[in-house]
Amino acid sequence: MSTDSPPEQADKNRFSISEHAFSAPNLEPALYIVSTPIGNLGDITVRALETLAACAVIACEDTRVTATLTQKFGLKAPLMAYHEHNADKQRPKILAELAEGRAVALVSDAGTPLVSDPGYRLVRDVVAEGFKVIPIPGASAPLAGLVASGLPSDTILFAGFLPQKAGPKTRRLEELAKVPATLIFFESPHRTGATLRLMAGALGADREAVVARELTKRFETFERGSLETLADAFEDRAVKGEIVILVGPPEDAPEAEAADLDRLLEEALADMPVSAAAKKVSKATGLDRNEVYRRALELKGAAD
């Protein structure tokens, strides 16, 4: 990576930290995926500043949000709006910049791009055209929440935003209920209480969980407890700020003996349809729901 550049390029490549000016080295042509702070602007990395200072253009979700960052650090690169609503129009422009041998930076409004946003389509097209993609790592809300949560971190599943409506949201949670990992979700503040209540029902009321709010900001908070306890705490509460919900892995359920399974199913089938009985017994035993459903059909057929 060459550091030699003409005077006008060197001036463009400058950035500042606490009124101290620095000059960034030139960049090789590539798409740079640049992580930016999720709240505290002090979390920006020197490498991120060098990249944003030396690139030809910064593609960002909202130019007004990113302008706050560029003004703070004296960055001069032009901003290009790039989001899911204009991606088809803007993507060819980014590819054209790369074809001309320029460096393009991609940022989100906060945190690491492509985490719960559609930027992967741009990366896919850039790779398909034979250009390099270079990650510039940094702040990430899911990881910030995880490391301070106290929940197991050896196996995690980032589930992003759940569906907004209760039915699809519950079905998605039921799909994740038995995943042996700490689950990480984004949620909007006004849906936090209702989502925690659905989680308590679908994932288990006693599941250990953490609600992280306003990570890295002045009013950063972590609230810990069972899903039921947190659902009670957030019910009817006016919540503000960005929310990350983390749910610990399920406890290992003991394998049910065949006789136990049949007894539980017969009791459930006495007052509910097959599908409901299978769902109830599957949740109680930890057995695969499809297998329980097949056995329920057998028992129902024999009884009839």
Rank of each mutant, 00 (worst) to 15 (best):
E235P: 00
R191Y: 02
A256Y: 02
P250N: 06
A231D: 01
L215Q: 07
V179N: 08
G248Q: 10
K217R: 10
P152F: 07
R191H: 09
P152T: 03
P168T: 08
D236E: 14
A209N: 01
I184M: 15
L162D: 01
L183R: 10
P254M: 09
F161L: 07
G150C: 13
L230T: 04
L151D: 12
E242V: 11
G204A: 04
K240S: 10
L176C: 08
I243Y: 04
A209E: 02
V210F: 12
G145D: 06
E223P: 00
D252I: 09
V179T: 13
E255G: 14
T182C: 11
L198T: 06
R213K: 13
K165T: 13
D154P: 01
A238M: 05
A256T: 13
L215P: 06
A233M: 05
K240V: 03
T155I: 11
A256P: 15
R191L: 10
D206C: 02
P163C: 12
E187C: 04
I156N: 05
G201V: 00
T192P: 01
E228F: 09
P152S: 08
E175D: 12
R237L: 08
R237F: 01
P250D: 06
F186Y: 15
L203H: 02
K178P: 00
A253T: 08
P250F: 08
A209P: 02
R237N: 02
E208V: 08
A233K: 13
D154R: 13
A200F: 00
A200L: 00
K165D: 14
V179F: 09
G145A: 14
D206V: 05
R237V: 14
G248D: 09
A233N: 10
F185V: 02
H190A: 05
L196S: 00
L198C: 11
L230Y: 03
R213E: 05
G204T: 03
T170A: 14
T192V: 13
L246T: 01
A253G: 01
I245R: 03
T192E: 12
D206L: 06
L227H: 02
R191K: 14
A258F: 02
G160Q: 12
G241C: 10
A212S: 10
P152E: 09
A253N: 02
F185G: 01
L176K: 06
P249H: 11
E257R: 09
K165S: 14
A209F: 02
T216Q: 08
S226G: 11
L198S: 14
I156G: 03
L176N: 08
E208A: 15
E220H: 06
A159T: 04
R172F: 11
R172E: 15
G193L: 01
I184N: 03
V210R: 09
G167P: 09
R213C: 11
A148V: 15
L246Q: 07
V211M: 10
V244A: 15
L173I: 03
L183T: 02
A253I: 04
G241L: 05
T182D: 12
E257M: 06
K240L: 03
K240R: 15
V247T: 03
